[in-house]
């Protein structure tokens, strides 16, 4: 059985359309979104509209938690003032441009989803099983720690997002943690495409594949310009390098980027 997981969408409508097309071409046994539908990009209402229309199941991210409770910020979990400054611009824009009906709908989304497939207990969360805004980076999530998260949350396969960077770690005990990455912005690798994850369970074996998605990023950039979103965000869309929210990156992930 094969499942597709869509991480943070960040109001990237064109990437979502391209991702859904790709998923329907390959044919999977289930698709879920993992939260953070808004932030960063323009016209946030287009995302819930499309997801509701397709009837896709999914969970809340910190964005949906904040928007549905009418909070004043995104609870993204940044500690650096510059990171928080840009996060606030995104949030204020998204808050002002999301309808009340969509905000209420976000509040009805579950915080986690569990299911069993091929004898494996899947757990879908936004940040980590214990916190909606915990960052699970590859270089700071060692095996013993991930093993503990799996045991404590009674899961064999944890799928998460929130950091923006995708990775998969098979654990020595046979469990797996997959960070699906995001389709909202590129992965800080100098490429303009975004990523989603396909996880396959086959005779007890779990494999994960990350799928690069090309989309009309120039069109997105043009819309962001019209909406007067920060030039730094547009630069990221056009170059594939992160220009903001850099201080939360651990040293290995930071060293891999340009800024």
């Amino acid at each position: 059985m094969r499942f597709a997981f869509i991480g943070g969408i960040y109001s990237n409508y064109w990437a979502l359309r391209a991702t859904l097309d790709d998923i329907s071409r390959r044919g999977v046994d289930g698709v879920w979104f993992l939260g953070d539908l808004g932030a960063f990009g323009p016209h946030p209402d287009r995302i819930p509209e499309l997801l509701i229309e397709r009837g896709m199941p999914g969970i809340q991210g910190n964005y949906e938690e904040s928007l549905s409770s009418r909070a004043e910020d995104c609870h993204c979990g940044y500690t650096d003032p510059r990171d928080s400054h840009y996060a606030q611009i995104s949030y204020d824009y998204t808050f002002a441009n999301t309808s009340d009906a969509h905000k209420d709908w976000m509040g009805t989304l579950p915080r986690e989803i569990r299911f069993q497939a091929g004898g494996k207990r899947f757990l879908l969360v936004h940040g980590s099983p214990r916190r909606i805004n915990e960052f699970l980076w590859r270089s700071t999530s060692p095996d013993p720690f991930l093993e503990r998260l799996c045991v404590e949350s009674e899961a064999d396969v944890i799928v998460c997002t929130h950091t923006g960077l995708h990775w998969h770690r098979p654990l020595p005990g046979g469990r797996h943690v997959v960070n699906a990455g995001v389709i909202g912005r590129p992965a800080n690798d100098g490429r303009t495409n975004v990523w989603f994850a396909v996880v396959e369970v086959n005779g007890g074996a779990v494999t994960a594949e990350f799928v690069p998605v090309e989309y009309d990023h120039r069109r997105l950039a043009g819309e962001m310009q019209k909406e007067r979103l920060p030039g730094e965000f547009i630069e990221t869309v056009l170059t594939g390098w992160w220009t903001t929210c850099l201080e939360v990156l651990p040293p290995k992930e930071r060293a891999a980027g340009r800024f």
Partner: peptide, 9 residues
């Protein structure tokens, strides 16, 4: 001891 407990960092 820390490995058995699952310390993160």
């Amino acid at each position: 001891e820390a490995r058995a407990i699952g310390v993160r960092e």
